[in-house]
C-alpha cells in the first residue's frame, strides 16, 4: 500500500508540479511544432511555383533588417524563457523583445507598401502569402508578450512558478524561428 501511495503522489499533476510543468511545456511544444506544418506547405508552394527565383525588385536589404530584428528578439526572448524555466523572473526584458518584434513588423509593412512586385507576379504572390503568415503569427505573439507584461503589473510572476512568462516567450521564440525560416526560404535559397 505504501508504495502505491508514493506512486500516486508522483504520478498525478495535482501533486507533482514538475509533471504539471512538463505537461504544459509538452502542450506548447506540440502547438509550435504543429505550426511548422503550414510553413512546410508554404515552402513547398514557393519552390513549386517559382523555384528558387527571387524578384530583383524585392529589396533584400529591407527584408534582412526585419529578419535581424527578429533574430535579436529571439535571443532576448530565449533568455527570458530559460530564465523562467530556472525560476528567474526576467519579465522586463520582454519589453525589448516586443519592441524588436514591432520594429520587424514596421519594416515589413514598409516593404509591403513598396508593392515590390505586382501581386499578379508569381514571386509577389508567394512573397505576400509567406510574409503574411509570418506577420499574423507575430501579431498573435505580440499579444502574448503584452499579456505577460500587463500581468506583471498585477500578479507576482512566482505565483504560477513563472509559467506564463515562460509560455509567452517560448511561443514568441517559435514565431521568430518561423519568421527567420520564412526569410531564408524567400531570399536566400
Amino acid at each position: 500500500m505504501a508504495s502505491r501511495n508514493l506512486a500516486s503522489t508522483t504520478e498525478t499533476i495535482e501533486k507533482n508540479p514538475v509533471l504539471r510543468r512538463k505537461m504544459n511545456r509538452f502542450g506548447m511544444s506540440v502547438f509550435i511544432l504543429s505550426q511548422l506544418v503550414p510553413l512546410v506547405v508554404l515552402i513547398d508552394m514557393r519552390y513549386l511555383f517559382v523555384g528558387t527565383y527571387v524578384s530583383p525588385r524585392a529589396s533584400q536589404a529591407i527584408a534582412l533588417i526585419a529578419a535581424v530584428f527578429m533574430l535579436a528578439s529571439l535571443v532576448v526572448a530565449w533568455t527570458v524563457k530559460s530564465g523562467a524555466a530556472h525560476g528567474e523572473n526576467r519579465t522586463p526584458r520582454l519589453k525589448l523583445a516586443g519592441l524588436l518584434g514591432v520594429l520587424a513588423l514596421l519594416v515589413t509593412f514598409y516593404q509591403w507598401s513598396l508593392r515590390l512586385s505586382p501581386t499578379t507576379g508569381r514571386f509577389g504572390e508567394v512573397y505576400y502569402t509567406m510574409t503574411g503568415f509570418a506577420v499574423f503569427y507575430a501579431v498573435v505573439g505580440l499579444v502574448g508578450l503584452l499579456s505577460a507584461l500587463s500581468r506583471a503589473r498585477f500578479v507576482d510572476s512566482a505565483s504560477d512558478d513563472h509559467w506564463h512568462v515562460e509560455a509567452v516567450s517560448y511561443l514568441w521564440s517559435g514565431i521568430a524561428v518561423i519568421w527567420i525560416v520564412t526569410y531564408i526560404t524567400l531570399f536566400w535559397v
Binding site: 504543429s34 503550414p38 505576400y128 503574411g132
Partner: peptide, 25 residues
C-alpha cells in the same frame, strides 16, 4: 489532427487569398 488540420488551414488561407486578392496559385 495535429498534422493535417494545420495543413488544410494553410491551404484554405491560400484559397481565401486566391479569391480575395485575387491570386493565381
Amino acid at each position: 489532427v495535429l498534422i493535417w488540420i494545420p495543413e488544410i488551414q494553410a491551404t484554405f488561407v491560400m484559397g481565401l487569398l486566391e479569391k480575395l486578392v485575387p491570386f493565381n496559385f
